[in-house]
Amino acid sequence: MEVIAKRPQSLTAVPFTYCPGCMHGVAHRLIAEAIDEQGLINKMTGVAPVGCAVFAYKFFNFDMAQAAHGRAPAVATGMKRARPDMHVFTYQGDGDLAAIGTAEIVHAANRGEHISVFFVNNAIYGMTGGQMAPTTLPDMKTTTSPYGRKVDDIGYPIRICELLDTLVAPYYIERVSLLSPADIVKAKRAVQKAIQYNKEERGFTFVEFVSTCPTNWGLDPAKAQVWAKENMLPFFKPGLFRDKGAEVKS
């Protein structure tokens, strides 16, 4: 029988620990496929965050580190500087990257650190049980914004791609969505580009995935996708912010 679909080599056989309908598994697969395609499995290493993806160090099929909350870009910096012959990525959620780890991501990007950062934005803290994130939308209810996120009190959601796009050094910045099969195909192309640039030592590459959290949003997976399309995409607009590798168009 012909095998037409199988687990990427860059994923282990350890079962994912994610909730039904969660998109982390899709994001993991896209990254693993891109690593396989670039033939990087034996030179790849990554950093798992704190949050739902904390066990990512078990899921990727090569040496991995697990970092303190928000510190993955600093840990990845230490790894890349210590082993310039290897390729390093971080995988981080919005609480990890956009709140407690803001300094680390901004400065790793500003140094143009030769790492890839994959950022999953689902507007909520998943693992700790649905608290407000820096990306939680205005008036959105969470367990720590039970009356809705009041922007006069706690401010507006942070748009990380836009923020990083103000820096000179980053090589590639793109926001994609995981909210439909067509979007996932587009997301795959962004991940491929980030991993390819990583292999080629071009510089700092960043891909944000707009995603869902059916469990903590209190929606079934299909409705969560619809909700995210209607509410998240207008605020977190998908698009290419920076691609220094693209040919200059006239």
Partner: peptide, 26 residues
């Protein structure tokens, strides 16, 4: 060798964590 002035003490020690994780004297 590698000298890197980190953005904070927190980042510096986490860079140490990454480099030490690669088995190098840091």
């Amino acid at each position: 060798g590698v000298f890197l002035q980190a953005e904070s003490e927190v980042s510096a020690i986490n860079m140490v964590y990454g480099a030490a994780g690669c088995g190098k004297r840091v």
